[in-house]
Design a protein around this nucleic acid. Structure first.
Length: 156
DNA sequence: GCCAACGTTGGC
DNA sequence: GCCAACGTTGGC
């Protein structure tokens, strides 16, 4: 019995990694997540093929800018073992890794981004994790209805 | 650049 | 186990 497909949203600061970077690369390891809740979603709940909204944070107009998909099962984030990486974690070992990630594959860039402001203004998204005050979870689950509504808004 | 909200650390 | 202090996120 196939498990129910989950939908996700990942945040990235476009100055460090934008949807264009992902488009160019095609696929990337989602390194550097150092929040346990976010890690748990990647490690335990993401499945290959799950659709992912790509969100630009900490920028002039924060917005959902495109779509990707989960492209690998979870595995240990290699940057935690790299003492030269800014994501190095001295408490992590290869035997007992602390941080896990998945690969994310590029699917499409929206012609028109869906801004955070639009999502906050539109009452249909009031129960989305993203629109909650103080919400800073960088990997978060998204309801199917929200995912589909956002996609619809870009082609309207 | 400011700062509120949040998560983590560490002393006790 | 509590909680103050600290560091980070991310909207504005």
């Amino acid at each position: 019995m196939a498990q129910k497909r989950n939908y996700w949203l990942v945040k990235s600061e476009p100055e460090s990694y934008s949807i264009r970077d992902l488009q160019k690369e095609g696929k990337t390891a989602w390194t550097g997540v150092r929040n346990y809740q976010a890690r748990n979603f990647m490690r335990d709940e993401m499945r290959v093929g799950d659709p992912v909204l790509f969100y630009h944070s900490n920028t002039a107009t924060p917005a959902v800018v495109g779509i990707g998909e989960v492209a690998s099962p979870s595995y240990p984030d290699p940057t935690q073992f790299d003492s030269k990486s800014e994501y190095f974690d001295p408490k992590a070992t290869k035997e007992v890794p602390r941080w896990f990630l998945v690969d994310i594959r590029f699917k499409k860039m929206f012609k028109k981004a869906v801004t955070l402001e639009e999502l906050k203004t539109n009452g249909k998204f009031h129960d989305m994790v993203l629109t909650q005050k103080g919400s800073r979870l960088s990997v978060q689950p998204v309801e199917k209805k929200h995912f589909e509504r956002i996609v619809k808004m870009t082609s309207a």
